[in-house]
Design a protein around this nucleic acid. Sequence first.
DNA 1: TTTCGACGAC
Length: 419
Amino acid sequence: MAGLSCNCVLPSPEMRKWNEIIKKNMLNGDAVQAMVTYVNVQEIGFHADNFTFPILLKAAGRWSSPCIGLALHGQTIKAGFSSHVFVQTALLNMYRSRRCVADACKVFEKMPVKDVVAWNSILDAYASTGRMDDALKVFNSMPSKDLSSFNIMISCYSSTGKTLSARSIFDNMSEKDIVSWNSMILAYIQGEDMERACDLFREMPAKNIITWNTMVKGFLQNQLYGEVLDLFDEMKNTNCLPDYLTVTGVFSACAHSGSLKKGTEAHIYAIDYGLASSPHVTTALIDMYAKCGSIQQGLQVFYKSQVKDIYCWNALISGLALHGHGYAALNLFDKMRNSHTRPDDITFIGLLSACSHSGLVQEGSRLFNSMQNEFGISPKIEHYGCMVDLLSRAGHLDCALQLIKAAIQARRSHPGSFA
DNA sequence: TTTCGACGAC
């Protein structure tokens, strides 16, 4: 039995119950609650065991700050799990999720027992950060490979644009699962070969929701909006029904092609099938209605929505800007701040373009300054673009020129923040 | 009961 040879605490029946609760928190997508439960468990005197740590480390990998992961790492050592293969693999993956490949490697190298999952994890650490040569070295030195090892290599080649190499792996697999097919379809999409992606889509023995959503993404990327709508109709008659991501793609296709009628039909479908309540869908709906000319319906969707995140606010601010409702966009920004939603760089693109479309020079300049001074957001090329547009439309050509100089200066000092 | 791989909003 792998991983049982360590000086660690034996699993207790009480801790088993707590592990189930922590796991349930995670399944609900609530990593914060999982951590809160764990902290409470510690306070009443229980300790994390070999089942607890993998669950917590997964949560820590998605955390915005590295502190939780580091603290948990320390606890695994104290609790005597330094050679437990599941705990160590979870630790490796925590660093991998945080894109700390060097730390992931350190964990991997110290592992006394490495199973195929551990090998796949380190393979993916290299593959997902574009380190093709290192990934290939790991792949070739693996003591044993499973389907995942090959699937990771397909993704690795596809993300580095090597579609032919991905296909060669795919063709040489003695056995393929649905992930292999989906990864290969995505490889063709990333290589802008929609025709071959379609061939595989029709050829594959079984499809799941990810297959369909990958195709939707491919058609969207290639501006084939009619195909997205056809795929949506086809999907409704299968046993793999559209999910929130599918309808999001459909709304995006309608937004780009201006199909208010199709968009409205898809909206009704989303309501009927309980897909209209997620903030992802709300965002896409607001954007669709705004771009199809019906800002009124965009407003309705926004105000009816129970959950409004930063994306929803941004979509409506940008929609109002598009329709030339400059003051309405600024008013919405005030409401956003009153609701304690912190604006981001996209919010300011919407606001500045709203000012530009409505000729609000003073308001725009004030926002451009406050975005840096009050919110600590450094302007990107798009923000400068909006400001140059705003100033030159209002006849302040000298100011616009000054700003272009400032943008060039900023690009020199922070090249990463400019596309 | 516990570790890895495919889609993911403005």
